[in-house]
Design a protein around this nucleic acid. Sequence first.
DNA 1: GTGAAAGCGCTAACAC
DNA 2: GTGTTAGCGCTTTCAC
Lengths: 344, 344
Amino acid sequence: MSTLAASNQVTLADVAAKSGVSTSSVSKVLNLQPEQYRMSDQTRQRILDAVAALGYRPNFQARSLAKGRSHNIGILFEGSLPTILRDNDSGMLSGLEPILSDAAYQMVFIPIRQGSDEWKQMLSDRRVDACLVVNKLEDRVRQVLEQLRIPAVLVNGLANESIPTCNVDNVGMAKALTKHLLELGHQHIWMYTNIHVHKHHSVAERESGYQQAMIEAGLSEQINSFHMEFDAFVQKLVQIQQRPSAVVVYQHLEAVRLLQACWRHDIKVPDQLSVATFNNAYPVAHVIPPLTTMALPMLQIGEHAARLLLEMIEDSSNNKVVRTVPRFSGWHLVVRESTAHVMA
Amino acid sequence: MSTLAASNQVTLADVAAKSGVSTSSVSKVLNLQPEQYRMSDQTRQRILDAVAALGYRPNFQARSLAKGRSHNIGILFEGSLPTILRDNDSGMLSGLEPILSDAAYQMVFIPIRQGSDEWKQMLSDRRVDACLVVNKLEDRVRQVLEQLRIPAVLVNGLANESIPTCNVDNVGMAKALTKHLLELGHQHIWMYTNIHVHKHHSVAERESGYQQAMIEAGLSEQINSFHMEFDAFVQKLVQIQQRPSAVVVYQHLEAVRLLQACWRHDIKVPDQLSVATFNNAYPVAHVIPPLTTMALPMLQIGEHAARLLLEMIEDSSNNKVVRTVPRFSGWHLVVRESTAHVMA
DNA sequence: GTGAAAGCGCTAACAC
DNA sequence: GTGTTAGCGCTTTCAC
């Protein structure tokens, strides 16, 4: 006998009693598809009525224990909460949440902190059924995931043999963004990436898009991609003889900083320099001047990732391996005041 | 017999077998304080050794079921992810996470969405043992929480009879911020709050701090607090004959917007207008010009909230009621370029 | 078609 | 001091 406060929770047994059947029948009705078992419509209806009448809701923990599933999805990320998780409206979370909720899955945030093994504990304790890895899949994380055979989907990270990945069409986006600048008459266009994100696959992809656009415009000699510290890039920009008339910045955070640096060095944006970037996230619309940017289809990506995760959990017993690397092309260009026609 | 893949997980029974005792003895050693039961040091050591040797880790779901605890803390918020949750380094999450982890609690984010009862389901399903409510405790939420007797702590929200609250010392902060402006020679200082946050308690508190500072400086006739739409405030600022030389902005997001508006209307910051605000969060350091702001002690608040929640869960069986409204005064002023000496 | 019964892994009251 | 046992609420196999 337990001493825990006898909760007034309605249990399966209550429903079974009320409808005059066994708990297993109730369980069947609640969990299985009609074609997976035989039962008279009459009985089923009686059970359904009882469920409704009593307002029965299954006990999450009990179900988890019996099924060997935690019904948690771990959201793995390193350091601070990633940008793509922060924006809720039309952001990735908005895509994930409804789909996971419907499947009775909840999201648990798991920061990977330096000097803490908490994340590893969570995984090896099976406190999650699957993981969404954000931005980057480090080797040590991948190893743990593989070893524990925890299904995982990588979002916005380097595509990898071992794990399905959801990414935006970086090439297409960068190409379209560069084309926008070309159409404004710019020819001398640079691309800048902070050295610290150098290893991320999307860097190469966005650069490729930029390069393709330049080449198609017959400006291949003008191609110039910089990977350096922020301050070094600013120095370069300030000191160079023939300054470019436009810069494509790999990341919106850097673009915001670039605007500040231009202000410090009295470079007028967009008169003397057009600035364009990726991600229509805060605060790109509120800086000086408002930034032209590519809006990423994070909602769709979130939805896709959620479905993929659920599938993988489903299939994990079958040892099926899902291996897709979709490219999401639902991006669109948001033109604001940081880009303008090139000055004569 | 279950068909679930026989996991190779080490169970309590394994430990018991290996150390030649019963599962209950192992359970005692693992869960109770030594003073709560009798056991020979020998036996205890044997059990501890077996635990270590086998690498035993308790099954989270099973424990949850047996104890009637989900070991989840729900983080309740409305709409988008609140600012105070976003910054991870030295932010509230950094305060919460280690403490909750240590107590084997994990955080589950629960957005309160319009038109969705998902949050209510989560609560009534007891999928959380307690809740951290962020920014605002709406009546409908409070009612559900009370009815279900789910312990909750409000952070950064209006203090209320029914629920313990962790807040910053808004009065002190606003006073110090205003004093900074006064020391720079400003006399004609306004305060601005977006009308949409009007109901938040901290508005009145920050206003009170601002007013106190003004009064103590003998400038009570200069006190001017505005609650209006952003655009209306900007109009006011642009059109007024004698423009203030400084503005205290209730929220950093609005301060960022204000800088943009000043730029549009060719009001030089800080030469013609000093701008000061609260919260040293992104992107205040990266706007034009960098914003002077009050850094909030969110880390401490997070830590305190975490401890409070754990206590409340512990005490909930005893029907003890915790009712504290601490004020955290670990703030500090960060002076940047948006404030300067008043021009003659 | 339906139900009995054996778990899932752990906790805790109580007996010895 | 230590073990026995009865749960926690649900799922699933298998017998009827």
